[in-house]
């Protein structure tokens, strides 16, 4: 029997893989992709709970998450292009501009 547990486990797995990608990769493009994976995991649990309670609010929230993810990807990739132009690299460890 397919239950909500299955979907929550899948959601947790996707989120965890995304977290590992963000923490362990240094290529900024792959870090951005890992963030998308984490957002997908969050969406999955929103939609699973929407199905559990039988109302649409979770699906609406998932839609908003998709819109915010699109905005985040656009701005993030613009920043990547801008950084790559001035410093010629996508290694995330080299980017200490706001810290130093």
């Amino acid at each position: 029997m397919l239950s909500i547990t299955h979907f929550l486990a899948l959601s947790g797995a996707l989120f965890l893989i995304g977290v590992c990608g963000v923490l362990m990769r240094r290529n900024v493009l792959i870090v951005l992709m890992s963030i998308e994976l984490m957002l997908n995991g969050a969406n999955m649990s929103l939609i699973a709970f929407s199905r559990l309670w039988g109302n649409h609010d979770g699906q609406i929230m998932a839609m908003f998450t998709i819109a915010v993810a699109a905005a985040e990807a656009a701005v993030g990739l613009a920043i990547v292009v801008s950084i790559f132009r001035s410093r010629a690299g996508t290694d995330i460890d080299d980017l200490g501009l706001l810290r130093d």
Binding site: L2, F7, L29, L32, M33, E36, N40, N43, I47, A48, S50, R51, Q59, A62, M63, I66, A69, A70, A73, A74, L77, V80, V81, F84, T90
Partner: peptide, 30 residues
Amino acid sequence: LLSASFIAVLQVLVYAGAMMVLFVFVIMVL
């Protein structure tokens, strides 16, 4: 499977379509 067919279509259109094109385009530029 979670009977969210509209969100599924949106996922394919926005994520697998638009956002991936954006990513691949940026990788090409870089």
